[in-house]
């Protein structure tokens, strides 16, 4: 620490910046990883269902609840009471 810094008691802040970034980016990398995984899952789930049943994209919802020990993947599909079977099967 330089003489001037000691005189004005100015503390170096780069360490704080580094630590804040490390914590934040660790979280953000997991979150973007999750959203890409969810997009892929949604796409493939829709493909599987439409092979058998006619549905719209907005009738399928996937949600990931991250927990400490375990995460939950919630798949919610709205099906009509009379299921229109997809052609070809």
């Amino acid at each position: 620490m330089s003489l001037l810094d000691m005189f004005f008691k100015r503390k170096p802040t780069a360490g704080v910046a580094r630590e804040r970034l490390q914590v934040l980016l660790a979280h953000e990398r997991i979150a973007t990883g999750h959203s890409e995984l969810l997009a892929k899952l949604l796409e493939e789930i829709i493909q599987v269902i439409t092979r058998h049943i006619k549905i719209d994209r907005d009738q399928v919802h996937v949600k990931l609840d991250p927990g400490n020990d375990m995460s939950t993947l919630e798949i919610d599909v709205d099906l009509p009471t009379v299921m229109p079977v997809a052609s070809g099967r």
Binding site: R18, L21, Q22, L25
Partner: peptide, 16 residues
Amino acid sequence: RAARGEMLSVDDVVEI
């Protein structure tokens, strides 16, 4: 400024 700890160092940015 990086040497005085006022700015992220090159090593900090590369590591992050």
